[in-house]
């Protein structure tokens, strides 16, 4: 046993750096290639500025305070929309998952609305809310609502009825059945919904901010386009990628915390 343990710890010590660096190898190589191609003039800086120029642009905007201000505004819109749409999606998903009558009443209406691409509503939303923050928050809420709703609903419905029956025989109350069997059983699906929702949250926000806004990352990009500041445009796009990656990492961390039992978290 001792031998096996020391062997396995040596094994993981050797593989750990590789596992940490491997995902970054291709992006790093692409950036190096990009820098070289830009410097020897194969890529025109007006089409795609070199990575160093983008970093310079980021530093310039950070120093002027413009970068932080726009990022904060975008984050606020994203989070507000996420909280509103997410909480409505979660509550309706739980309600319809638990009660057949509620499902009968609500689900087909929800499915009808879901089949309208929410970005197609932009003209209507602008008419309703003007071009203020409420229009963008409304759109983000709508985008976030459906993945959370559908996956919560599906998660609750996929619970093995045999487990619920077992819970009843073992004397669990309705409340305990919900908190000890339904909720933990639906959690993997709910986190899948969360991941999709966060993706849609950024997507919706980008579109909403590029079409009509006077602040935010999307506005910063559109504004820079007018002045041919390609470096700022590319930086804004990279910023979205970074924030999207951050949101994804948060979900992964939640999965590690909440689903330690799940096959996806083992081995």
């Amino acid at each position: 046993m001792q031998l096996v343990q020391s062997h396995s710890s040596k094994f993981s010590w050797q593989t750990l750096p590789w596992q940490q660096f491997a995902p970054w190898l291709i992006p790093a190589a692409l950036i190096v290639l990009w820098q070289i191609l830009a410097q020897i003039g194969i890529i025109s800086t007006r089409i795609l500025p070199a990575p160093t120029q983008i970093v310079e642009a980021a530093i310039r905007l950070a120093l002027s305070g413009e970068l932080v201000r726009n990022v904060v505004v975008s984050l606020y819109r994203a989070l507000a929309g996420f909280l509103i749409g997410g909480s409505i999606g979660l509550s309706l998903g739980v309600l319809n998952g638990l009660a057949r009558r509620a499902e009968l009443l609500l689900d087909s209406s929800i499915q009808m609305i879901r089949n309208i691409p929410h970005l197609a509503l932009i003209p209507l939303v602008i008419l309703w809310f003007g071009i203020g923050d409420s229009a963008r928050i409304f759109l983000v809420s709508l985008g976030v609502f459906f993945p959370i709703y559908i996956n919560t609903f599906a998660g609750i419905r996929s619970i093995d009825p045999n487990l619920l029956e077992m819970g009843r025989v073992y004397g669990l109350s309705r409340k305990q059945l919900f908190s000890q069997i339904v909720l933990p059983g639906a959690l993997p699906n709910m986190l899948v919904g969360l991941r999709y929702a966060l993706g849609l949250m950024w997507l919706t926000l980008i579109v909403a901010e590029t079409i009509a806004a006077n602040s935010g990352i999307g506005y910063m990009a559109m504004n820079a386009r007018e002045f041919m500041q390609t470096d700022v445009v590319v930086m804004s796009i990279l910023l979205y990628a970074l924030l999207g990656k951050l949101a994804d990492s948060i979900v992964r961390t939640l999965e590690r915390w909440w689903l330690p039992w799940h096959p996806s978290q083992q081995g």
Binding site: N162, M166, V169, G185, W261, H262
Partner: peptide
């Protein structure tokens, strides 16, 4: 108490 053919254990516990 019932013991079932499928163990019906909760994988999250």
């Amino acid at each position: 108490r019932v013991m079932f053919q499928d163990s019906r254990l909760l994988p999250w516990r």
